[in-house]
């Protein structure tokens, strides 16, 4: 730590496992707010849209929302509030 440590290698060089605080659910969510996401419900229905915001219950506000059932668009909503208990997962629709 005392000597001038070289800058970290530019990724890909199999980084050591990060400490438990980074990569936490909160950090993930900070990274995806404002981005296009896929929200999968436990029923299997997907909602694709721009993540406006969410809260501690995983309640979600989405913009430009498309409802996908079995790969086909079944509905479109300008805004959508999704109650968090129905959420199975959130993933980024594009590379982060």
């Amino acid at each position: 730590m005392s000597d001038a440590s070289p800058p970290p290698p530019p990724a890909e060089a199999s980084p050591p496992p990060p400490p438990s605080t980074s990569g936490s659910p909160t950090d993930f969510l900070k990274g995806v707010v404002g981005k296009r996401v896929v929200v999968r419900l436990t029923s299997g229905v997907d909602y694709r849209g721009v993540l406006s915001c969410l809260d501690g219950y995983m309640n979600i506000a989405l913009e430009q929302t498309e409802e996908h059932v079995n790969g086909t668009v079944t509905n479109r909503y300008g805004d959508a509030f999704i109650r968090g208990n129905n959420v199975l997962y959130i993933s980024a629709a594009e590379a982060l």
Partner: peptide, 24 residues
């Protein structure tokens, strides 16, 4: 990074929908 709506938490979306026709 937020759009014009000024939504900060999901419930804001519902609050802004009071007295409006909604789909549930």
């Amino acid at each position: 990074m937020d759009t014009s709506s000024g939504i900060q938490e999901p419930f804001d979306l519902i609050r802004l929908s009071l007295s409006e026709k909604v789909f549930v």
